[in-house]
C-alpha cells in the first residue's frame, strides 16, 4: 500500500511544529488531518477515523494523555495506532498512564528527526 491510502491525524498546539509535520506527511503522500487541542483532536478522530494519530501530550483544553484515555474507551478508538510525540519529561505518573493506554510509540521530539518519525509511522502502518 502507498501512503496516499492513509489518513494521519496530527494533534499539536505548536503552529511551527504542526506546519513542519503537515509539510512532511503531505510530501510523503499521506492525507493529513490537523487539530490544535485535545478536544478538537478527539472529536476529529472519532468523526474521521484516521489510520494513525500523532499526539502531543501538553495540549490546551484536554491533554494528550486524557485524550488517549477517552479514545481507548471508544470501540474504534481502542485499536487505532497512536504515536506520542512530545518533549515532556516523563515522570512515573506519566509513564504509568502511557503504558496503560497502549500507544504504539513514545517519541521524544528533540531526539527524533522528522524523517525518523515518518519512518516510525510507515513501520506502524506496515508500508
Amino acid at each position: 500500500m502507498t501512503p496516499d491510502k492513509f489518513t494521519i491525524l496530527t494533534v499539536e498546539d505548536e503552529p511551527p511544529m504542526l506546519k513542519a509535520i503537515d509539510f512532511k506527511l503531505t510530501k510523503e503522500g499521506f492525507k493529513v488531518l490537523k487539530a490544535t487541542d485535545g478536544e478538537k483532536g478527539l472529536k476529529l478522530a472519532l468523526l474521521k477515523h484516521p489510520d494513525l494519530i500523532l499526539l502531543d501530550i501538553l495540549l490546551p483544553k484536554i491533554d494528550g494523555l486524557t485524550m488517549l484515555k477517552k479514545l481507548r474507551q471508544d470501540e474504534w478508538g481502542k485499536k487505532v495506532p497512536v504515536i506520542l510525540l512530545t518533549n515532556l519529561v516523563m515522570d512515573d505518573r506519566v509513564t504509568r498512564r502511557i503504558v496503560e493506554d497502549h500507544p504504539a510509540y513514545y517519541l521524544a521530539k528533540s531526539e527524533w528527526r522528522l524523517d525518523d518519525v515518518i519512518a516510525k509511522i510507515k513501520l506502524t502502518l506496515k508500508i
Binding site: 505548536e14 511544529m17 513542519a20 509539510f23 518533549n87
Partner: peptide, 25 residues
C-alpha cells in the same frame, strides 16, 4: 518538567526546519 518542555520545543522546531532545508524539501 515545564522548562524541559518549553525550552526543548523551539529547539526542536529549529532542528526540524534545518533538517527539512538540508533534505532539500
Amino acid at each position: 518538567s515545564l522548562a524541559s518542555h518549553q525550552l526543548q520545543t523551539p529547539l526542536t522546531t529549529i532542528n526540524w526546519y534545518a533538517d527539512m532545508l538540508l533534505a532539500g524539501d
